[in-house]
Design a binder for these strands. Sequence first.
RNA 1: GCCGGAGUGGCGGAACAGGUAGACGCGACGGUCUCAAAAACCGUUGGGGGGCGACUCCCGUGUCGGUUCGAUUCCGACCUUCGGCACCA
Length: 816
Amino acid sequence: MGENVEKPANYNPQEIEPKWQARWAETHLYEVEEDAPRPKWYALTMFPYTSGDLHVGHWYAMAPSDVHARFKRMKGYNVLHPIGFDAFGLPAENAAIKRGIHPYKWTMDNVERMREQLKRMGSMYDWRREVITCLPEYYRWTQWFFLKLYEGGLAYRDKAPVNWCPKCQTVLANEQVVGEGICERCDTPVIRKDLEQWFFRITRYVDELLDFGGTEWPERIKAMQANWIGKSRGVEISFGLENGGGFSVFTTRIDTIYGVTFVVLAPEHPLVAELTTPDRREEVERYIESTRRQSEIERTSTEREKTGVFIGEYAINKLNGERVPVFIADYVLMSYGTGAVMAVPAHDQRDFAFAGKFDLPIRVVIAPPDWNGGELTEAHTEAGTMVNSAHFGGMPSDKAIESIADYVEEKGYGERKITYRIRDWLISRQRYWGAPIPMIYCDKCGVVPVPEGDLPVLLPEDAEFKPTGESPLKYCESFVNTTCPQCNSPARRETDTMDTFMCSSWYFLRYTSPGCFTCSADPAKMGYWMPVDQYTGGAEHAVMHLLYSRFFVKAICDLGIVDFDEPFTRLFNQGIVISGGQKMSKSRGNVIAPDDYVSTLGADSVRTYLMFIGPWDQGGEWDDRGIKGIARWLNRVWAVVIGSYEPAEEDEAQTRELRHITHKTIKKVHDDLERFHYNTMIAALMELTNHLGKVREERAASELAYNEATEALMLLLAPTAPHLAEEMWERTGRPYSIHNMSFPEWHENLVAVEEFTLVIQVNGKVRDKVTAPVTISEDEAKEMALRREKITSYIEGAKSIKVIYVPQKLVNIATT
RNA sequence: GCCGGAGUGGCGGAACAGGUAGACGCGACGGUCUCAAAAACCGUUGGGGGGCGACUCCCGUGUCGGUUCGAUUCCGACCUUCGGCACCA
């Protein structure tokens, strides 16, 4: 019997993986259509940027999300799992400049390669739905959305600063500014330069964006978005000037108004030039110049020493008529509030530091708890009792916030206001490789949108996309020169292109209607598939991409284009794969290419290994040796499934144990898949495999139980290792395809146990363990514990004892 | 700096709701097979002490403190590290 059991042929991924990939494609296994009666599941993975080869980091985003999509499919959902390419952007231009390849060619070559690599991963993508954002058939609709937002009053033009390299005469991305504001190409200090650019009014949607109703997002991502939006309530109050006029400041702490000893304007504040006195002008201008060289992060750091300049002018605090000096300082930003702050050194840490440096008075107006009237050593930022505050003295400061606000409004000095940290979305880019903004400038008619029928505004192929000092398209005369759609006279096109976040704010709509020529996405198809049920991608997109997409959908919902106002119902952010202790990146040279592993150990091993290295949301370290362990395990799976099994002498207890483990594993794998706990799911499958190995040696469990276990093992492994599962399914005589099978069910009565280990602790330390029936009562358990020989010695001589019982867990005896 | 995470054996990690710390895997060590090696398989493996031994005691989840019968888990402060900070995507 056992001696002449045929030896199963070895598991050979090189052979079976391409075979099944071809078969799946031939049989259109993963192509999906709307199917109203079935519940739908839209499983979306953030599409990759066309950076070149697919590396392990890409796999880490794609493979586990494919596993989840496959799981949902086995659960009976009609699953849409598309993929595409984010194809516009800076790297294509950089590559073009460096290697003399046209961005289009560079990008499309990358798409070609990445597509083949993605196919080797064995994911269930419906390739008919692929989108590539740099193709006119796609960006035509990106432009169309721009026009819709423009019509809806959500797009406008305004001045905004860009990083400018005076030597290269070009706009730099933040990434191209290195060190302390240096151009990465020529080492010249970078300055900020104002340009007229296009914005979207995302600020109009702040309150809606703060409302996450109807979504199931991680709390930490919601917190990050809420902080990004940065809503604060306060008062906008005006300060007078000695020669008349004035300016407003925004404060969340109007209760400290009587403690104002100076005011600070942002160096960019429009009043600065006007107010600066002649004797201060030179120093002020020098300071403004130095500010232009600094990033916001540097400017707002609370760590570094405060800098600023007195501009020679004084402002009047209207509440007490006091005359306070006006400074400019880089820590005040023009983009927040009114670009001016009232400084209360006694109650604000930054103001305290500033006052210390410039020897300005520090006046306490909210008494710290046991204040003796002396000098403060640091700002007191907490609430307290009002002092030195006219008729508000003696009032609790939290009450005074309201009373003073009322008083200010009554007197007409200012009003309550809500301010947000978020700024409108600047979408203009002075670059070639992006979707042209579909606007025309006519001398007679002004700003005129390109008529919808004229879309797409094609990106000219022959433009000079190297840095020239202007938007590259400005030099492409065939592009720039056009006629006004309204009056037909000669006009010029907008030469800036759109931020690539614009392309990625609606791609998930396009997947529902591939290749639609008459619309961005078919409303019926969108109606079926949207919103996305599960979105997965890197946490680096927690704020920008995810916030822009939400804004976009809310805006087009209000414009009547879609009928849902949140794009992504559930969100999951995966962590990053580390190699050599660091994040993988081309510049660090520690990128792991999966291709060799796919060729030798198989895509299934790579997929499985990536899911095993750690919790998906936390990432983990890629270790060459680890993947071999996975390959070993998959071989053991092959051996226990393919090898025949015949019990020698059946033992009912062994059969029961095997069935218990099988059903426990089904439940565990199910629950782990639901929650993306892949690493523990694989551990559970390994335990089942190890147990099956033991069963094969002992040959005591029934054949029926063995077959139940191996069938479950194949099905449970199908989402993770789709090729291996399919091959085993076929070899064990089952019909094509395992990927059309349902997820196995478990029986609770087989999962349940009859006995458990009762842990007995004395003062929280484990001193004994005993097997007890699950039906044991609290009294029985406590009595059992106290009677144990080992325990009696620990509690001898105790004055009093307290016994705590945790059902089906432990008894703890606390002695005194 | 600000916002959001994370810190557990030699390593990746497990512990679902405050209740047996170290599942599963890697590595290492020992063994089987082999002329030998590789592969595969079996066993041991947090640190320290005691016992011939079945065993047993102490310490241990970044640091310090707190809450609790009991803390990897909750609270406070700190340290380290990772992601984001608006033109990388």
